[in-house]
Amino acid sequence: MRYEMRFSGVGGQGNMLAAMIVSEAAIYFGNKHACYVPTYTSQVRGGPTKADIIISDAPILYSEANNIDYFMSLHPKTYKMYKSDSKQGSIIVVDMNMVQVTEEDKKNFRVYELPIVETARNKVGNVITANIVSLGITAKLIDAVSEEGLLKAVERRVPPKFLELNRKAFEIGMSLVK
């Protein structure tokens, strides 16, 4: 088993943290090999960010994802920049209010267009939980880590004060995938 993933967006959205949580879920709660490679720019907030995760039964050598099974994007700029490494037929999840997916992409990939940031703001009640909403969606869509393991990995990372808020974000995220 080898599963390659990429989370992308702009600095401040929490995409790198989301990706780190996925890799930790695979290691701590899935007993898998996993690596996590974040990249950002000197612009920090508002600059393009991407984070790659590879989950595998075998040790991983080269750790940048370049044959991607699952791509999440919360920004049109990074959607265009980082989509090209996705496999034919792979999963692409975008925030439907930010990223416009072309008809061609819809043919080539299994595209999920979901209101991620809007859900975080209006249904969870805090826009900064958008990355955890993303993780709820991810939990529902992938088999490389379990739903339970991913939630545990979220709980491991968030401050106790915000535990309930993040659990709620995760669950609402899961419910977005029909």
Binding site: S23, I27, H33, C35, Y36, V37, T39, I60, S63
Partner: peptide, 9 residues
């Protein structure tokens, strides 16, 4: 920069 931020077990 790649190795510095690459995280694994």
């Amino acid at each position: 920069a790649f190795l510095a931020h690459l995280s694994e077990k």
